[in-house]
Write a protein that binds this DNA or RNA. Structure first.
Lengths: 203, 203
DNA sequence: AAAATATTTAATCATTTGATTAAATCAAAT
DNA sequence: ATTTGATTTAATCAAATGATTAAATATTTT
């Protein structure tokens, strides 16, 4: 009864890897069993079905993602600009470690939005975040551009995440290798906050 | 022998729709047959296999994409800045019509880069485009930032394409409906060129 | 009209795949 | 040592799926 716990975790780890790499539809439960060094029968014994296992993995993915954004956006001890710097640095580092997460997540969300959004914390609503609050204060005090803050967030997220999604295409078109690509993304940790600030400043 | 041509085209149109919406792995040849109002046997009679049909569709997708970028980037009659405006306007319009193309394309490219890149025109290499040429001239004359031009291209492409990829997520997090989202993207046709110009200008 | 070509129908294959079962083996707890 | 629970093995199901076939029907060409 008090088992190692490592078996269930081993299966989940393998599932995370295989699902992330191949997507739900292209993943065979046999692949996961093999990747976790465990028998197919045991996989079903523990997780009942492919879909159930997938849901568990996705839930964890989304929770983790959501939580780490919130932690930055809702920190009262950092300034608006510091948050931008932290977001860029934090995400680029994370995505260099796990480059396939975004395309996997977004592709699966597209296929089944309802189920996955049910897993999202309602409080993660960024409209009420401290980040947006600070934006509004800045806007009053410094007369920054009367720009929909969505644009700014969208630009930041786009410039951080999209290159990872388009990685194979970018590397093919530019001839960069993976290391050069990563270095370029590391450069962007400093550049993106600068660009965002320029966007905000009133001309 | 000289047949309507409409049957083969009907199948291809349906295949494009279904593949684009569900991805290769999740697409059933029966879905395509049904969607094209044609018999499964006929589909195989014409296209031999699912993979073959997919390759044909993808080839056309990639060629079309590649061609339309090149046409803008290599036009000698437009200025550097005009190209930026044209790219933003052209792509945002196109993506509002076909929002699922990018995620489909990038997901499949990730799964099978080699096959798909073989279809890409080598001359589409944007390093040698007139656009980059004009960038280098600008850099000399106006002393714009000594910035890797990849960053600029990447930012532009990111800010244009990413929102469409993240559409379901964005709408869920912000509460926008599809029309509001589209309007926001239309606003960006004017905004993105401005932002890009600001990035280029030496501070 | 006759011949040739295109399309449909329906049946059928062989594989793949998610899932289950029952018995065997292994490990840990009592 | 025995019992209990965890894991493996191997066999097997049923359904889904890509693909093929042969015969029937429709359409076009000659």
């Amino acid at each position: 009864m008090n088992k190692d716990k490592s078996t269930e975790e081993k299966i989940k780890d393998a599932a995370r890897r295989v699902f992330t790499q191949k997507g739900y539809a292209a993943t065979r439960t046999r692949d996961i069993a093999e990747a976790s060094g465990v028998n197919l029968a045991l996989l079903n014994y523990y997780f009942k079905s492919k879909e159930n296992l997938f849901d568990i993995i996705m839930l964890e993915n989304i929770r983790e993602f959501s939580h780490s954004v919130l932690a930055i956006l809702n920190n009262r001890d950092t300034s608006f600009y510091q948050k931008i710097e932290l977001l860029a640095a934090h995400y680029i580092d994370k995505l260099i470690q796990n480059p396939e997460i975004p395309i996997f997540l977004l592709a699966e969300v597209k296929d089944n939005p309802k189920k996955l959004f049910a897993a999202l914390d309602k409080r993660a609503d960024f409209k009420n975040s401290i980040f947006v609050q600070q934006w509004l204060e800045l806007k009053d005090i410094k007369k920054t551009a009367a720009l929909n803050p969505f644009h700014i967030i969208m630009n930041m997220v786009s410039m951080i995440i999209f290159p990872f999604i388009a990685n194979p295409m970018i590397r093919n078109r530019t001839g960069m290798n993976q290391e050069q690509f990563n270095n370029m993304m590391l450069e962007r940790k400093k550049l993106i906050p600068v660009w965002i600030t320029e966007m905000i400043q009133q001309k």
